[in-house]
Amino acid sequence: MISLSVNGRTHAVAADPATPLLYVLRNDLGLNGAKFGCGLGQCGACTVMVDGAAVFSCLTPIAVLPGRRIRTIEGLGTAAAPGPVQAAFLAEQAAQCGYCTAGMVMRAQALLEREPGADEARIRAHMQPNLCRCGTQLRILRAVRRAGRAMTGGRRASL
């Protein structure tokens, strides 16, 4: 049994410690957000956050995760009450097939939590690991900037 903290809840998982987190999220915990795209760390479809950083869940064996804080798109908000990054993606309609989208949201979330004011060049460099074949990159960039504005505004408001 390996104990994993996912979206604030602790789960005891009976899986081989070598199993990449992606498979445990999807098949043991029933979370659909992280997607299998390549299993090679080349596309970012599987991106989740671990201790605040964006990581490829397809290459992260659960053996290294006890004691660490895992977040997936399911932890950012719901369809009815989306988090700021999710809301910005909706507002910009930043998807076509949407297969890459959850990974995009998670990578953007990791950036904006540290740097909500990130500029275009910074956002592009940060998002570089994630691929979108439908060509929604321009919408994604708009959504990330929009979310950044919302998150800066929110922070100011709460001060």
């Binding site: 410690p17 070598a18 990449p20 397809c58 290459l59 992260t60 064996p61 659960i62 053996a63």
Partner: peptide, 14 residues
């Protein structure tokens, strides 16, 4: 054992 699992989950795919 830990490193074996690490390699299998993080490196073996390539």
């Amino acid at each position: 054992p830990e490193a074996t699992a690490l390699f299998a989950g993080a490196c073996a795919g390539c």
